[in-house]
Write a protein that binds this DNA or RNA. Structure first.
Lengths: 196, 196
DNA sequence: GGGCGCCGACCGAACGCTTGCTTGGTACAC
DNA sequence: GTGTACCAAGCAAGCGTTCGGTCGGCGCCC
């Protein structure tokens, strides 16, 4: 009944383990010894599977961004109007972010650390694409009359992107289901809190 | 013309210096040697003014929470209806948060670190009061018909509190004035992004 | 008014501990 | 009998913190 040892599937298991710790504590705050402990292993043995702590972070982050960008591209490509595209982004993001909680915590808490290193240059690239997608959608929606004419696309984007990434931090509190959060968010986003 | 040396005004200067670094990098990520360097001093000499790095953090955090709570209490006491109170909270918060950028970064990035220690128990207490204030306002507004009947007060609070604390992180980008951000935020909050 | 004592501010050097990472060896697989 | 997965031990660098000592300036005494 012990876990059958697939060839290099064990490596994936280690990444997931590390990811759990990163999601709770952030990347820098997590030590290689903690990761090793969680795996029931000595810290030095980790370096049989990875050549550095950063490599683990790299794997987590790049996988996350691929998923996010794929979601954004699909949402834009397969939606008729900006409002529908935004709703699709929000809904797909929630699923993606839920699967990659570690990556998001890392980006939120250790952005300075990663974004400074050449190795993680792809972070900045991906962020730019995300920003451009939002701004295009917001401006197109404004032009077609779907959104308020006085909407500041850039400002609204900054608010929205961060807002969208927030609820992931609430992981541990099981007060709400993912669906509840998305619905609450979309409602707040489109209609505000005022009664009609 | 050199800075006249007030007795223990130099201490305040050090706190502000440290705060600047905390705001950029977070508390844990900032080393006492960095603080000392910024002050043109050796790291050990810091301990002539403070008995620990945590003490510096304590001073920054407690001052911040006092200001925030004062703002919340005044907003509730001096407003007639929930909607007005919320608008007042948002407007006062923006000013407060701007003055205490370091504290906010510390809470966002190092919450786990601080909230675990008995010394910083007041953090949890203050947060509870903030939460209760929001929930009371949202529920009262729902009862009086000012807000949507299907508004989930607790969920909305979680979104709003975090949203409110977000723009502080954008410090460096001078793309927007504080007023612009508040107005955009309030508009988004009450009315959403849809055109009427 | 010149010397004395003191005190705040800082230096220089170290302490104990934790960090990410390396190295040499071993047990077991196939 | 070669390779994989691990252990045991340890390294250098960096962390927060401590400690003995230096130095300039202020009050004060005679």
């Amino acid at each position: 009944m012990s876990t059958s040892k697939t060839p290099s599937e064990r490596r994936t298991h280690l990444v997931r383990l590390a990811g759990g710790l990163f999601a709770e504590q952030g990347f820098r705050a997590t030590t290689v010894r903690q990761i090793a402990d969680a795996a029931g292993i000595l810290s030095g043995s980790l370096y049989h599977h990875f050549d550095s702590k950063e490599s683990i972070g790299d794997e987590i982050l790049s996988a996350f961004l691929e998923d996010v960008l794929a979601g954004y591209r699909a949402a834009v490509a397969e939606s008729d109007d900006p409002r529908a595209a935004i709703e699709r982004i929000v809904r797909s993001s929630t699923v993606t972010l839920d699967r990659h909680r570690a990556a998001l915590t890392m980006l939120q808490r250790d952005w300075n650390y990663f974004s400074g290193q050449p190795r993680f240059a792809y972070l900045r690239t991906a962020m730019k694409e995300i920003e451009q997608t939002w701004i295009d959608l917001l401006e197109r929606g404004r032009e077609t009359g779907a959104f308020r004419a006085d909407l500041d696309a850039r400002l609204t984007y900054r608010l929205l992107r961060d807002i969208l990434w927030l609820p992931t931090s609430w992981a541990s509190s099981k007060s709400w289901t993912t669906d509840q959060i998305v619905d609450g968010l979309l409602r707040l986003l489109f209609d505000g809190i005022k009664s009609a």
